[in-house]
Each structure stands twice: as structure tokens, then as C-alpha cells.
Amino acid sequence: MTQFKESSVEVANDTEREWNLPDLLAHRQWVRREWPFPYIVAQNVFKAEFYQELDAQFRDLERTNPEMFRRDMKGYDASATELSHHCDGPLSVFASRSWHDMLAKIWGVQATGDVAASLHHHEPGGASGWPHNDLANGWYPDRELKPDEVQLSNSAEVNYYHGRVKPETPARETVRAVALLYYLGNPEWQPGDGGETGLFTTFSGAGQGPAVVVPPINNSLVMFECTPFSWHAFQTNRTPRNSLVWWLHRTKEDAVARWGEQSIVYW
């Protein structure tokens, strides 16, 4: 979960569609765990009918437009496509303000309304990643958002990793505040299939393996606040592994005040 890819494909935007989360969520007992660092897991996140819609959109995308999954993330053994290209269907729930605000409130984050998200695919035999904490910066067009609006990264105007593309476009630097993985479109997962998200106690202890692994079970999620200690990594897989990766952002000033300038990971 290091990067999401840049693309020039035209953006389909349905982010203003109304999503009523109480009607979509299957239950309201998500589980927060404190070790090796605070994280939240939930299985059966959405009601079965809505999950089937999400699953169908993802599988349709894989079947009809596999070229949209691009393998250009350095040091990360996956292909990806930005969520912003797929907001014309149920996946746009992840680009809704209600989803953004729900997660911001869960983690007590003063979020900026800026979201980075993409769909990831790992072929069987994908290499395990090295632990990283996701406390990284991200750039967005500097404009005021409406209360019900979310701003997805838009590489045509502002490069997410490095800032402005067009001199006339003002840009703001944010820092990832919450990372989330939602698993979908996978074959039924069994122990031994791999593809888990590994959580680590320390970076230096990565050689001993993750302290906890979260299996990629369809319609489940894992999320955590991005901190200097939120070490996590993809674990090698024997079966295909698909997920949606998603980040909420906070202002850089907030991140620096909280974690110190030296803790921010720059691209």
C-alpha cells in the first residue's frame, strides 16, 4: 500500500451520488484492536446485496478493461487503477462525503476532504512488501470544498506525489491520516492462500515477520491511523488478491504538530 498510479484516462465522476450508509452497512460492530498498533477490522461490512454490486463492478472492470490496471508502482508487486476512473457505479460510495466523514470521526481526525484511492490487484506469487507506515504527503488542488464534497486526487492538475503540474493551479500539501483496505472480488480465502495485510510491531523487527496478519476476506476491511508506528506490508499470495486502498488526509500543519516534521515520509 505504497502508491496509487497516475493515469490520463478520463475520469468518470459520480461522487455526488447520495449514499445512505446506515442502509448499506451490514452491522455496526466493528472491532478495534490495540496491538501491534491501533487498527480496526470489520467483516461483512456491507449488506450482501450491496457487496454483490461492488463485486460485480470490480469483476466487470477486470474482465472488460484489464489494461486499466497498470503495473507501475515502484517496489510494489501489484497493478492498480485509480478509483476516480470508476465512480460511475457502486464503488463511488468510497468517494462519498458520508464515507469520508464516517472514517474521520472514527479516528478523530480533522480531515481535509481530500481522498486518494485505487483498486489493487496482486497476481498469485506476488512478493511480500517491506513494512511502511503510510505517513506520507500528498498534494491536491487548493480549493475550498463544499460540505458534501470529496476531492479525489487529479493528476492532470496537481501531481499527488510532487505538487502542481500547471503553474496557474494552486496546490496544497496534505499528509495521509487514515489508511484503509477493503477486500473484494477475491476467490474464497483459505488459510495458506496468503495475501494478508501484515501488521508489525517495529520496522527493525520486520525480519521476524508480522505480529498480526489480516486475511483478505471479501467484504471485509482493515484500517488504521497513519502514524510513525503503523508498520504494515502486503504478504505474499498464492491466489489472486484484490482490494481497494483508500487514504484520508489531514493538513500538513496538523501532521507536523502531531508527529514532527522528521516523521513525514516524502516521495
Binding site: 446506515p22 455496526r28 460492530q29 466493528w30 478495534r32 490495540e34 472514527i106
Partner: peptide, 17 residues
């Protein structure tokens, strides 16, 4: 437990569970 707790995603402040 001290390691694990329930979170209501739509009512984070409700700790009754």
C-alpha cells in the same frame, strides 16, 4: 478487553457495547 473493543462506525461515542 484492553486489547480489543467494539466500534460503532455510525456512533463512535457510544461505548455501551
Amino acid at each position: 478487553s484492553q486489547f480489543e473493543s467494539y466500534v460503532d462506525p455510525l456512533a463512535v461515542d457510544d461505548s455501551s457495547a
